[in-house]
Design a protein around this nucleic acid. Structure first.
Length: 221
DNA sequence: TGCCAGGCCGGGT
DNA sequence: ACCCGGCATGGC
């Protein structure tokens, strides 16, 4: 079921994307030099500021630990030491190892083989990994594997909710369908729109102020 | 200074 | 099916 909308007009994600693109320009997401770096970033950024994630990824690079085999082979406490700046370092070390273990065990360590799965199967496999939930799985599907999977996060919900497009208690998959059902098969739009929503979400309606003065969406959504 | 950041899990009700 | 505490660092 699509969540009930209080808005008079049907939600048009492509129009929303055009507004944001016009206002801010291309987002340039996801930062990362390789698909695996994107995957690692997706785990490390869970409830964590990206600036902290960057430090941890730099540590992994400096220690030559930014690949599947190395993470699979490294004890989690040693891995954790490099992850300190990103917070939750013990649990994140475990999560990165769970991910690497899955890729080693089921796909011979090959991201090509993993990404050869179709979007639904890839999402399912990722969700079976302890420490990977829907947002992390979908971020990997979209930004690392290049699948047509739209990423929903807390900001996406908050923004749509404030505009009366969804109810506050709408489920993840419902919100996702709202985008995937309307956006065309345009991977660039999937990537860029989510990125913009996160980007504006930070200072968008942070307080109980229902509408920020400079909101580019005002009157448009 | 306290609050927040691109969540997720496990245990309890 | 929800609800909650825990996980942890760095920036404003």
């Amino acid at each position: 079921m699509i969540p009930a909308a209080r808005s008079r007009h049907p939600f048009d994600p492509a129009a929303l994307h055009r507004i944001l693109l016009n206002h801010y320009g291309p987002s340039g997401w996801w930062p990362g030099e390789s698909p695996f770096e994107v995957m690692v970033g997706a785990v490390l950024t869970q409830n964590t500021a990206w600036t902290n994630v960057e430090k941890a990824i730099a540590n992994l690079k400096a220690a030559s630990l930014l690949d599947v085999v190395a993470i699979h082979a490294t004890p989690s406490d040693r891995l954790a030491a490099h992850l300190r700046p990103s917070g939750y370092y013990n649990i994140k070390a475990r999560r990165l190892k769970n991910l690497a273990d899955m890729i080693m065990g089921s796909f011979d360590g090959s991201l090509e083989r993993l990404f050869a799965l179709d979007a639904r199967d890839l999402r399912g496999i990722l969700l079976e990994v302890n420490g990977i939930g829907k947002e992390t799985a979908d971020s990997i599907c979209c930004y690392a594997a290049g699948k047509l999977v739209f990423v929903v996060d807390a900001y996406t919900r908050r923004i749509l909710s404030r505009h009366g497009i969804i109810n506050g208690d709408a489920g993840y998959d419902d919100v996702q369908q709202l985008f995937e059902g309307s956006l065309g098969p345009d991977l660039g739009a999937y990537k860029d729109l989510h990125a913009h929503l996160v980007y504006i979400g930070k200072d968008y309606c942070r307080s109980r102020n229902p509408m920020c003065g400079e909101c580019p969406l005002k009157g448009s959504v």
